[in-house]
Design a protein around this nucleic acid. Structure first.
Length: 105
DNA sequence: GAAGTGATTGTTACT
DNA sequence: AGTAACAATCACTTC
């Protein structure tokens, strides 16, 4: 199996591939890892001054999983909170528009 | 009703 | 500006 490199966006295709990009594209919320990385990135780099992203990334992942649900809670909580944010967009997006619509193309 | 799929998020460092 | 491992996600799509 090919390692979906390139943010796997480029890999999109096959298996139907119906989902197109939306005009409003209510992006989704961030994920727990994003919040986790936001905090760790500081610490990790602090313990590993001068390390590249590859090291941080892998190291981060290791620590991330090392955490107990309890530790991930705060991150998941943020992720959930961010998800809500997305709900808004999605809602507004689904609304389609009130009176005037834009982005028609 | 259940299953799957794709699209997206953010970090750092480099070209 | 975009890409790369790392991980989660999870809302929408389709049958």
């Amino acid at each position: 199996m090919p390692k979906e490199t390139k943010t796997r966006k480029v890999a999109k295709k096959e298996t139907g591939g119906k989902r197109k990009k939306d005009p409003n594209a209510p992006k989704r919320g961030l994920s727990a890892y994003m919040f986790f990385a936001n905090e760790q990135r500081d610490k990790v780099r602090e313990d590993n001054p001068g390390i590249k992203f590859g090291e941080v990334g892998k190291l981060l992942g290791e620590k991330w999983k090392s955490l107990n649900e309890k530790q991930k809670t705060p991150y998941e909580a943020k992720a959930a909170a961010d998800k809500k944010r997305y709900e808004e967009e999605k809602a507004a997006y689904t609304a389609g528009g009130d009176d005037d619509e834009e982005e028609e193309d």
